[in-house]
Amino acid sequence: MLPRGLKMAPRGKRLSSTPLEILFFLNGWYNATYFLLELFIFLYKGVLLPYPTANLVLDVVMLLLYLGIEVIRLFFGTKGNLCQRKMPLSISVALTFPSAMMASYYLLLQTYVLRLEAIMNGILLFFCGSELLLEVLTLAAFSRI
């Protein structure tokens, strides 16, 4: 018996979104690959190109912040979707916007944008857009109880 106050969904009526969960799973592995590759890319740019030191430090620090935002966003999204809770899913929706902003920064505004970085950030933006759409639909489904 569960403690009083917590209520579970009735058996046989599951509202979690399977495509959203697939996207979160793929996005998690993709983000891990992305950040490792970005560290190597910044090493490459720092050695080969005349990268100003202040700009290099700024870009790497922002990359670490971006990693934190992504981890929190994916965790709350997965938890909200699987537990059919609206509040974690709303937090994940809210964190999608700064995440898209960071991807746009690395796509357009950093000091040197390599073509590989452009391709990878384009894929990240695609993930953000798709997850945002599915999260909104899942929130609507949760609200119809």
Binding site: L49, T111, A118
Partner: peptide
Amino acid sequence: FPFLCVQSPLANTPFLGYFYHGAVSP
């Protein structure tokens, strides 16, 4: 080269201002 070349616009050129510093890096 096609994957690791820089495709950002020339406003971020590394030669910006280096002529007046007399060095490659500030």
